[in-house]
């Protein structure tokens, strides 16, 4: 498991479009945006309109917080001071299981894995967990490998 993230060195500033999303993580809910007109889902919630139908009548879809690891990087040289103690850490893009749409596209999210590089591979199932921070208003979602899969790929260089 990577070292600790020093959340005292990270200030998350929710805005009008995202404050409900951060309120969601505090209640251990992983939300994505959803269009009330056509049902399209997306992430991140900074976008205030539906890219399928342009509706601004939008709400939230509470996902199960499970998905498949789509790609990842292993940060070896930290740039954000809060993460100096966490290197090397894995940031992953995850395709959510319950956000597949009729055209075959899937809503993708991202986050810092709770696993070390050796345990991570493209194609593995992952599940969200929640981490308390030094800011009482912010709970940070993290991701953990939750099982095995048949066709996985990992960077082995």
């Amino acid at each position: 498991m990577p070292g600790p993230i020093d959340y005292s060195k990270l200030r998350i500033l929710p805005d009008y479009d995202t404050v409900e999303w951060w309120a969601g993580t505090k209640q251990r809910k992983y939300l994505v945006r959803q269009c009330n007109a056509c049902g399209h889902k997306w992430f991140p919630p900074i976008f205030p309109a539906c890219a399928r139908c342009t509706s601004m009548d939008i709400g939230w879809f509470e996902t199960a917080g499970r998905g498949v690891l789509h790609s990842y990087v292993v940060v070896v040289q930290p740039i954000v001071g809060a993460f100096i103690g966490a290197v090397p850490y894995v940031v992953a893009i995850i395709e959510l299981d319950d956000c597949k749409e009729a055209d075959g596209s899937v809503t993708r999210v991202a986050g810092v894995m709770l696993n070390d590089e050796a345990e991570v591979a493209i194609g593995l199932p992952c599940a969200v967990e929640y981490e308390e921070t030094s800011d009482a208003k912010i709970v940070m979602p993290r991701w953990r490998v939750s099982g095995t899969a048949a066709n996985t790929w990992k960077f082995a260089e």
Binding site: I5, K9, L10, R11, I12, L13, P14, D15, T18, W22, F43, P44, I46, V73, V75, P78, I79, V80, G81, A82, F83, I84, A86, Y89, V91, A110, G111, V112, M140
Partner: peptide, 22 residues
């Protein structure tokens, strides 16, 4: 060197917040 205290606003909430900036 590294950013002493990072402000994650706008897009940055969903990348700086995960230590994923450069």
């Amino acid at each position: 060197g590294p950013i002493p205290v990072a402000l994650a606003e706008g897009d940055g909430q969903f990348n700086i917040g995960w230590g994923w900036t450069t």
